[in-house]
Design a protein around this nucleic acid. Structure first.
Length: 415
RNA sequence: CGGGGUGUAGUAUAUCGGUAGUAUCCAUGUUUUGGGAACAUGAGGGCCGGGUUCGAUUCCCGGCACCCCGACCA
């Protein structure tokens, strides 16, 4: 993509209504736009990152048997009354609205009810189990206070998978697979080294749930990490008995702030009961389906990556989620530089390498460099009179201080 | 939802009870091009409603919005 065609521009000034670094950088670099407190739009660059993250999650979910679908945003009141979660007394963060005829409808804030209700039509035998449907969708929560930029919004984009298993054994088996898939996801998006599987409260569903917590100062949670074992405990269950059960010693734990980037938990029969979600086993006996829930907030994950991996100059995207792989900067406006730049851009594009080409924008070299650092694309390639005189193009990683000159022929070997 | 704070141009800010200034951004022109270039010319602004006043962007009241702390949460 040519940068001269990209409608977004970088900003020199930081927005005053954002303190969170993730939002500050993403707004300055033109990835997102703030619509109101806790609500952000994804601009072309931001959407490219979201799609990269989405694809990684999709691959990992499909690998453990997930089946992607898309549930509706508008939620049927009757379904939620079955599980006892419609009333504002039970769930006080609903966004609700009305139909023309006066009937109430809700904007989805989670998916258990929708899935249990749909699957009831299709599950009747042990032969129908297990199944692992999931979707990516926008979720709405009327949070009293949004904060931390895109880490906590009133509207956010997530992936939710629900497991439907015959029994506890089947459930536990899948649960462990999901843990590994989650590990892979966070590894692949570049924050695996900062992310700990964390024991947390299971709420009303089960004794424990597992959170995936990424260590960063911007985090809202406090966790206690055992570095050697690579696991952590959320402050909410940081009790002597819990530590003992987990085989953790208090004096080996390090307290850190962290962001919950993912969460998996067992639902048992909390939802299969009210929806009468049963199947007949091999002996003809009716049994309740055992459910589990597996969520990841994509916007939050994107924000966490920015928080974890930026520097004073801007964002540093891991290659796996970067909006482009290469940022090609053309400096100067002489014919030779222009034609060599165009040629390289076409050549790389033909090879399927994603390039953002800062072509004939009439701005200084310094400004192009500053923009490039802010946007944070992994490889920067410069074409200029100087580079051509030196024998080709200058290539530099975002994480490196100095680049090197590489010839046209050898350039693609660098990626 | 409790407490505190702030609303001035696309962005970031200054001043002031009496014609609202600066930077950046934008437009045009000339010169420039390896770390946010220079000059010139031009365009663009007081959240909404009420009150006090000869006069309100400024003071007062109400609303709305945004930010921060707390409570709550993927």
């Amino acid at each position: 993509m040519k940068q001269s065609h990209l409608f977004t521009k970088t900003k020199k000034e930081s927005p005053t209504d954002e303190v969170a670094q993730n939002a500050e950088l993403l707004i300055k670099a033109g990835f997102i736009n703030k619509e109101m407190a806790g609500v952000y739009s994804y601009l072309p660059l931001g959407l490219r990152v979201i799609k990269k993250i989405e694809n990684i999650i999709r691959e990992e979910m499909d690998a453990i048997g997930g089946q992607e679908m898309k549930t509706s945003i508008l939620q049927n009141k009757e379904i939620w009354e079955k599980s006892g979660r419609w009333s504002d007394k039970d769930i006080d963060i609903w966004f609700k609205t009305k139909f023309k005829n006066g009937g109430e409808v809700g904007l989805s804030f989670t998916n258990e009810e929708a899935y249990a209700n749909i699957l009831k039509q299709y599950i009747s035998s042990y032969k129908d189990l297990p199944v692992y449907p999931y979707d990516f969708k926008s979720i709405f929560r009327n949070e009293a206070r949004s904060k931390s930029g895109i880490l906590r919004g009133k509207e956010f984009y997530w992936k939710a998978l629900y497991s439907f298993s015959k029994n506890e054994e089947g459930h536990n088996e899948f649960y462990e697979k999901a843990k590994l898939a989650y590990r892979n996801i966070f590894q692949r998006v570049g924050i695996g080294h900062l992310t700990y599987i964390t024991f947390a409260s299971g709420g009303s569903f089960s004794k424990f749930s597992h959170e995936f917590q990424t260590v960063t100062g911007a985090g809202e949670d406090t966790i206690y990490i055992d570095e050697d074992k690579g696991i952590a405990v959320n402050k909410e269950v940081y009790e002597d008995e819990v530590l003992k059960n987990l085989g953790l010693e208090k004096d080996r734990l390090i307290e850190k702030r962290a962001v919950e980037v993912g969460n998996i938990f067992s639902l048992g029969t909390r939802f299969s009961e009210p929806f009468d979600l049963k199947y007949k086993d091999e002996n003809g006996e009716e049994k309740l389906v055992v459910m589990g829930s597996y969520g990841i907030g994509l916007g939050r994950l994107m924000g966490t990556i920015v928080e974890s991996l930026s520097d004073g100059k801007g964002i540093i995207w891991p290659e796996s989620v970067a909006p482009f792989k290469v940022h090609l900067l053309s400096l100067g406006d002489d014919d030779k530089t222009n034609s060599e730049g165009d040629k390289l851009y076409e050549n790389l594009s033909e090879k399927g390498i994603e390039v953002l080409y800062d072509d004939r924008r009439d701005v200084s070299a310094g400004e192009k460099f500053a923009d490039s650092d802010l946007i944070g694309i992994p490889y920067r390639v410069v074409v200029s009179k100087r580079s051509l005189n030196d024998g080709g193009f200058e290539i530099k990683k975002r994480t490196e201080e100095k680049g090197k000159i590489v010839s046209f022929e050898k350039l693609t070997e660098e990626f």
